[in-house]
Design a protein around this nucleic acid. Structure first.
Length: 414
RNA sequence: GUGGCUGUAGCUCAGGUGGUUAGAGCACCAGAUUGUGGAUCUGGGGGUCGGGGGUUCAAGUCCCCUCAGCCACCCCA
């Protein structure tokens, strides 16, 4: 049992799970299409530099969660831990920034070396949307609306809450950061070990610490509101106003901070209480500086990503399994004939399940288990008459049908 | 990376304080039904008790290590 295990944090997706994943992904894709977000697929690995530059050396993802390796050419390669960096890289390397604004929707596996727990795996799947080249707050509103719309389409509207915050522009951030560090430094010794560590690298993240004393200290900390530049404040007000116009409900969460360096202005998370400690279901924000950091032309962007596993855990719907027609030969000659008949019927567009083995009773049981719509019995008698018996497995009715008419008669069971 | 809980058949789980050939239900296979499913009955195959080491006359049971799962911290999707 212990001999052949999947790598820790990875899972096989059996047909049922694949169908529920697909349901999530296809539902989202259909909604994204209405917003004119075009599909894009980037490689699942990139040069390590792509992620280090964009996510920031101090981010947790880069400092401890990346699957990196050296390839045979000596290049450092990393399995993508998130989707935005790859999409932005593609835009730059493909010269796509000529045609701004760009709207992309993507989906696929991501990799993070973390300790697995509920709603968290080392290989997991995300869907995501990116809007590039729109500096206006209407872009933020659209991208959030898209996320809300998808959650609604998945029937998860009632289970999720939209939390919203602004990280301001560069000027707001540095001013706030300085003030915050000054304040927190006074309580340095009372802070948790984790937070003391963060004080130097990423002080903003102390704001959403779960440690009790940290929270008490944070409660008295200077708030970001007071440090927002007029431009940043105005921008955020426009985003909030836009959401109000669409009647999309949100909660302002001043402690909401994004873990990745490239975010600015709007930060948002759709959260749930249904998934234990992993409450975030769909999250993102604005990343105006990202293109430039990567060496592209200065281009604003907003986007989000959502975890397919997490969405699938909450939505109990799945793509329905197709209902086949079971082709059941009886006897040697019929068995030989069945192969070509199955081929013929499949080419006519029918879903044919051919079991290859077992007696009639056995195969009928299988047909039933596979939820077959009908069974086509092909025996010696029928063959002599160039016919087959067609049984409706829902009603139990059965009739003999000429082989020539089979396609036409089976069309009723599609 | 840190901590807690768990690990017996494909799945869900029984197996008081160590004591012969490790059980059940479901699932699977076969038969009752040599050409008729969803029901029922009968029989059958499956386990190096996660792995390794140790204590013991004797270990599924006790000890150590290791791996994995779950949950939490951290962080996030």
């Amino acid at each position: 049992m212990a001999k052949l295990q999947p790598v820790r944090g990875t899972h096989d997706l059996l047909p049922e799970q694949v169908r529920s994943h697909r349901y999530v992904e296809e539902t989202a894709r259909a909604v994204a299409e209405r917003y004119c977000y075009a599909p894009i697929d980037t490689p699942i690995f990139e040069f390590t530099e792509v992620f280090v530059r964009t996510l920031g050396e101090t981010s947790d993802v880069v400092s401890k969660e990346m699957y990196s390796f050296e390839d045979k050419g000596g290049d450092s390669i990393t399995l993508r831990p998130e989707g935005t960096a790859g999409v932005v890289r593609a835009v730059i390397s493909g010269g796509l920034a000529q045609e701004l604004p760009l709207k992309y929707f993507y989906g696929g596996p991501m990799f993070r070396y973390e300790r697995p727990q509920k709603g968290r795996q080392r290989q997991f799947h995300q869907i995501g949307a990116e809007l590039l080249g729109v500096p206006e707050p209407t872009g933020d509103v659209e991208i959030i609306a898209l996320g809300a719309h998808i959650l609604e389409a998945l029937g998860l509207q009632a289970n999720t809450t939209l939390e919203l915050n602004t990280l301001g522009d560069q000027a707001s951030r540095t001013a706030y950061r300085d003030d915050l560090v000054a304040y927190l430094s006074r309580y340095r010794d009372d802070l948790s070990a984790d937070s003391r560590e963060r004080l130097g690298r990423n002080p903003l993240r102390i704001l959403d610490s779960k440690d009790r004393t940290d929270r008490e200290i944070v409660a008295g900390a200077p708030t970001f509101d007071d440090h927002l530049t007029p431009t940043a404040a105005e921008f955020f007000a426009a985003v909030c106003g836009g959401l109000d116009d669409l009647a999309i409900a949100y909660t302002l969460t001043p402690t909401l901070v994004r873990g990745l360096d490239y975010y600015c202005h709007t930060a948002f998370e759709f959260t749930t209480t249904e998934l234990g400690a992993q409450g975030t279901v769909l999250a993102g924000g604005r990343y105006d500086g990202l293109m430039e950091i990567m060496g592209g032309p200065p281009t604003p962007g907003v986007g989000w990503a959502a975890g397919i596993e997490r969405l699938a855990m909450m939505s109990h719907d799945a793509e329905p399994a197709p209902r086949p027609i079971a082709l059941i030969p009886v006897g040697e000659e019929a068995t030989v004939r069945a192969a070509s008949l199955a081929y013929r019927l499949r080419r006519a567009g029918l879903i044919i399940d051919l079991a290859h083995r077992g007696n009639l009773s056995r195969r009928m049981k299988r047909a039933n288990k596979h939820h077959a719509r009908a069974a086509v019995l092909l025996g010696e008698d029928e063959l002599q008459r160039q016919a087959a018996t067609v049984r409706d497995l829902d009603s139990g009715e059965q009739t003999e049908v000429s082989l020539d008419d089979l396609e036409a008669r089976l069309a009723a069971f599609r």
